[in-house]
Amino acid sequence: METEEEKKEEESPAPCLLALNHVSRLCRNVKESTDFYTKVLGFVLVERPPALDNFDGAWLFNYGVGIHLVQSQDENRLPSDTHHLDPKDNHISFQV
């Protein structure tokens, strides 16, 4: 038997998504990653909300897409092989 909350969820239409806002990526080194995204791919550093200054990261934007780079605090959450892309792992793909 459904609860009242489950009934409300079924009745509520899904929100109309307009666009991708941003992608957030954990990284080993925020500065090196920022250099890659700005110097190679042409992204621009944008201001981070002051409330998010409690961790190391960088906010970038271009081509209608935001990228949030966040310094990983846990090496185990990062790919172990830094020389090969695993297509089954998290990744971002840009068409150029």
Rank of each mutant, 00 (worst) to 15 (best):
M1V: 08
E2H: 13
E2M: 12
E2L: 13
E2W: 10
T3I: 09
T3E: 11
T3N: 12
T3K: 10
E4W: 06
E4G: 14
E5F: 13
E5C: 13
K7Y: 10
K7H: 10
K7A: 10
K7D: 04
K8E: 15
K8R: 14
K8I: 15
K8H: 14
E9M: 15
E9R: 15
E9A: 14
E10T: 05
S12Q: 15
S12C: 14
P13Y: 06
A14T: 13
A14V: 14
C16M: 05
C16D: 09
L17H: 06
L17Y: 12
L18N: 06
L18H: 03
L18W: 02
A19F: 12
A19Q: 09
A19G: 07
L20V: 03
L20H: 05
L20E: 05
H22N: 08
V23P: 03
V23M: 09
S24A: 13
R25C: 14
L26H: 08
L26C: 04
C27K: 00
C27I: 01
R28Q: 08
N29A: 04
N29I: 02
V30Q: 01
V30Y: 01
K31L: 03
E32W: 00
E32P: 01
S33L: 02
T34L: 03
D35R: 06
D35W: 05
D35Y: 05
D35A: 10
D35S: 08
F36V: 09
T38E: 06
T38S: 04
K39T: 11
V40D: 04
L41A: 02
L41G: 02
G42V: 04
G42K: 00
G42N: 04
G42T: 07
G42I: 04
F43W: 01
V44E: 11
V44N: 12
V44D: 09
L45D: 00
L45M: 03
L45V: 09
V46S: 07
R48K: 05
R48L: 09
P49T: 00
P49L: 02
P50S: 08
A51G: 08
A51R: 06
L52K: 12
D53E: 07
D53K: 02
N54C: 08
N54T: 07
N54D: 04
F55G: 04
F55S: 08
F55E: 10
D56K: 05
D56N: 07
G57D: 02
G57K: 00
A58N: 01
A58E: 01
A58C: 09
W59E: 00
L60A: 00
N62K: 03
N62D: 11
Y63P: 04
G64Y: 02
V65K: 00
I67H: 01
L69I: 02
L69C: 01
L69W: 02
V70G: 00
V70C: 11
V70R: 03
S72G: 06
S72P: 04
S72C: 07
Q73C: 12
Q73A: 14
E75Y: 03
E75H: 07
N76I: 06
N76C: 11
N76H: 14
N76S: 15
R77D: 15
R77E: 15
L78F: 03
P79D: 07
S80F: 10
D81C: 04
T82A: 13
T82K: 11
T82R: 10
H83V: 11
D86S: 06
K88C: 10
K88G: 05
N90D: 11
N90S: 13
H91A: 10
H91W: 08
S93H: 12
F94V: 09
V96A: 13
